[in-house]
Amino acid sequence: MSNNEKPQKTTDLHIGDAVPGCKKKDPMLVIDHVKKTFGGLTAVDVEHLEIPSGVITALIGPNGAGKTTLFNLLTGFDTPDTGAWSFMGTSLSGVPSFKVAQMGQVRTFQLTKALSLLTVIENMKLGAKGQSGESIFRALFPGFWKKQDEDIEVKAMELLKRFKLDTKKDDFAASLSGGQRKLLEMARALMTDPTLVMLDEPMAGVNPALTQSLLDHVISLKGEGMTVLFVEHDMHMVRHIADWVVVMAEGKVVAEGPPETVMKEQAVIDAYLGAHQETDLGEVTGRINIIKGEDK
């Protein structure tokens, strides 16, 4: 991975010690007592968690830690057994997923959901909010939506250029590579003008040649004032771009803090490797082979 320039990290986000459940100075998401069980298995059991505004937060943890389930709960795609959570002060408990998205909290999926038999540009335009042509009566008469549709297309093309997909605009999404679909999904999410972008494993299955551009896109979201929460296994990526890291294991938050310190915590190493191992986490969980000594 090329580390030509270090992204500017935001620090000093928390109040008091960086312990699980600590208060943030400017929280965007506040989660309280959210619990979800499948059969006898507790998938998520979060006492208290705050996600800071305007920065990039990584959600990490071993397989089965409940990261994706927490994502589904926060976005209304699944309902918890108990608990409450709020987004910018508005309670989201029981709010259906499409309304959550309308409020500015947009997500992507671990298994990419590009709409295969729609063209790339149609995928993009679908993302735009508040389209009058999406109401069935106005849809019949182009006069109501033609102008707006053209504006949406301009905006979509700008985003596609940024994501280097503009040449593919009339191709079916099915014809894109896995990495291109990830890019398309992220670009489509941005069409909704979100406040909080939640990315579920944005790097999974992406060709290494594309990872750097994806990373740059994630960092640029922060530059544009958006808050990012992402799930990722690749510790190098986490260390590289995250301002804050939340570690989950067996459904609970076991640690949180700035990336440099949190990865050294015994609880985190235990969560991944079991007790008493001393290995760089990046070496174990990273997808890219590390040439020994490069990081030193």
């Binding site: 999926f109 959901k113 709409l115 038999l117 679908l126 999406e134 999410a189």
Partner: peptide, 18 residues
């Protein structure tokens, strides 16, 4: 466009606020 999107993957369309 929304209808065809739903045919392809309704969760994706839902995640876009429809």
């Amino acid at each position: 466009r929304v209808i065809k999107g739903i045919r392809e993957d309704e969760e994706a369309v839902r995640s876009l606020g429809k």
